[in-house]
Design a protein around this nucleic acid. Structure first.
Lengths: 407, 407
DNA sequence: GGGTTTTCTGAATCCTCCA
DNA sequence: ATGGAGGATTCAGAAAACC
């Protein structure tokens, strides 16, 4: 890593890892199972896939079939309330976001607008769909509270830590160095998509945290107009969208972006072989987005195949191991240190030695330790060739035999 | 929608506020600026400094003199959606968690509670006071939106990035690795305290960002009960509070914590020579907090001296330099590169070479560059011993002569 | 051409005193 | 209250300009 071994304390700024977290270029199981995009369902055929709809986002969303999209990614107006112009210490002027679409009469007006588009987005979502919204302290609290009011179930709030934020020029506040994303399911009982294993595998085998570090969208990636000025005031970095789509969608899924802008969502969706629906009010932005997306080459399908996911692997009962002969009834199971012993029964239950207790590998494992719960697959071991292995090994062997890859 | 012209844009923000509910009557005594804690003002004498008040926080706050505290730090409860057991703020049970109406009911109850304590805190704050609230996605959005509704002016949202968060055991979400603090002034025109220079100096001379990295409160710092279990479920790390107090208060300031809990705010306030007022409902916590705070030794005053701050240094007019002979009338001033020249006049004004312009060092510096504004102290240079120095050097010399430290 | 320096810019609620 | 003036204030990264 770095050589900034400065004292124990290590303050904030310098402590951030300079390198950006690698995005696993692979994230999701094969597209096949979810046939959303290719199925012949009526509602699907009505979906304007991979198109940019021009007009009022609420009306456009209302015209989509209900329950038809897997993910909504929304980057709504922030309702910045800027004072006079701001200058840098060198007297140059800061190019502020003063576009008309970011101006609202009042918090009440902003709330009404927010409520309306959130409702429309919720209607468009499949029951198991999820929603991401990005914002700053100017608007995100209002958005989050309204989401809760409308029945969205918040899964995480996520911090986009900007590697290179604009400083605070007057020295009157902390550098505003992040934006907030809220990730929510359509309702509390949604069975949403979260590609946990793939994310973890792409993150040096540790869980991905709720704080993400990415640089701003600058340089070549930033779209420019014919005069070389930034085309859109708030273009988001593709890396951010890639993390969003890789974490919460599968290839083939449909992503709706009701504030399409420069089309980052569409570009990343195409690259990652997801479908998108964009809604944008301004033709100028839509035209630029279309050209941008046309130039994108999708990644190869192999690049998008996920590593085997334990969670999504089909359940294999211990009894199946017995049935298939990977464990013989009467075999002895022990814990890792050989302190507890149990005997395998023909029905796939096990019985604890020196006790009348019979039950599942999990239940009996818990009983043996006096614990409330226990993962029998990793607790119990079998001896093979003089070495102890967790029975999870046998399960993996069975899965391999069955030719089960990922899902 | 309004069309906001560039120049007039400044008023946008202010126009948003009038329609919000009127704030509780605030007598808002001007409160002798800094020395509040030590001054003999009547309202101050009534302040229960460095005490823990037992009881309902809203009632207790209402009994404090209005406009009497410099900072409120609040770590409110968020008993929502946790563990399937839903409680209203008054501790009554909410029956059906999945009932949408009840969910709404509980949000409404939480909002009412939040609104009430925020109003009470606002009343207790001095006009130039600020408020920190810490929370997670369960409650922070509601709190933030209500703060805006009540007229608080958000200065920053701050992310406490946990160095060692609890992992997500189910693998169904991102590791919840942060909490959010909202920092807000009592109103948009508050002249709040922000120790910018000191913070920057302690951060390798770069501005402190809005994302702070601290470990959880563990080990010796974590209070334990007689059975060795953690005494309080959400004890905050002292490092976090230290950053809060060091950034937004001066020694001697009064800090109110309406959800005192294990007393971290009090312990840190005492160590940093701030006064505190704690409010806590549970005697057990208050007892532990009292013992904890009693054991704290305040830092030496020297350890708390603020570094020199240009902003707070006494004003010295350029004419004073002329009067004292640090610059002689007729001396030549140039910019750093020697492109512009001006001559010092006896009255402390300067005249631009080859032009009829006469005025202050700032005005003439701006004129010379064709800029709108200019800091003459750093723009203009004098030559001494063959080297060019900004005239700011002379000012520093005069301040030293006058024996003026930096406040 | 290659290495170094300068310039430019990014969702920003960004000053304060005194007359 | 309001206006004018004093004078305080920036980090990282990429691109352009300059040797």
């Amino acid at each position: 890593m770095r050589s900034v071994a400065k004292g124990a304390a290590g303050r904030t700024a310098r402590q951030c890892r300079p390198e950006y977290p690698a995005i696993a270029p692979l994230a999701a199981p094969p597209a096949a199972p979810r046939k959303a995009a290719s199925s012949g369902a009526v509602s699907d055929r009505a979906l304007p896939l991979n198109e940019i709809l021009i007009g009022d986002t609420i009306a456009r969303m209302a015209a989509l079939p209900a329950g038809s999209v897997d993910l909504v990614f929304a980057d709504p107006p922030y309702n910045l309330q800027l004072g006079g112009e701001l200058k840098r210490p060198d007297e140059s002027r800061v190019d502020a976001v003063d576009d008309h679409w970011d101006q609202f009469e009042s918090f009440a007006a902003y709330d009404a607008f927010t409520r309306a588009w959130l409702l429309a987005a919720r209607r468009a979502l499949k029951p198991n769909g999820t929603l991401f919204v990005i914002g700053s302290y100017h608007n995100i609290f209002r958005v989050g509270a309204l989401m809760q009011d409308l029945g969205f179930w918040i899964l995480n709030d996520i911090i986009w830590r900007k590697a290179n934020p604009m400083p605070n020029f007057r020295g009157r506040r902390f550098t505003n160095a992040h934006e907030t994303l809220i990730w929510a399911a359509r309702s509390a009982d949604s069975k949403y998509t979260f590609n946990y294993e793939a994310l973890k595998a792409g993150n040096e085998d540790v869980q991905v945290r709720s704080d993400w570090l990415f640089p701003l969208c600058t340089g070549q990636e930033r779209l420019k107009d014919e005069k070389g000025r930034k085309l859109h005031p708030t273009q988001k970095p593709e890396a951010l969208l890639a993390r969003v789509l890789l974490s919460s969608t599968k290839p083939g899924d449909v992503v709706l972006d009701p504030f399409f802008g420069s089309g980052t969502t569409g570009a990343v969706a195409k690259r990652l072989r997801r479908s998108f629906i964009g809604i944008e009010r301004e033709e100028t932005y839509a035209d630029a987005a279309r050209a941008r997306i046309d130039a994108v080459e999708p990644l190869s399908e192999e690049a998008l195949v996920a590593p085997p996911s334990a969670r999504e692997a089909p359940r294999v009962a211990f009894s199946a191991l017995v049935e298939r002969g990977l464990v013989t009834p009467g075999a002895e199971l022990t814990d890792a240190k050989g302190r507890f012993r149990a005997v395998v029964r023909a029905d796939g239950t096990i019985s604890l030695a020196d006790s009348p207790n019979v039950g599942s590998i999990h239940r009996v494992g818990a009983l043996a330790q006096g614990a409330e719960a226990c993962n029998g697959w990793t607790f119990w071991h079998v001896e093979e060739a003089g070495r102890r292995h967790p029975i999870d090994i046998l399960r993996a062997r069975l899965r391999a035999e069955m030719g089960i890859a990922a899902e």
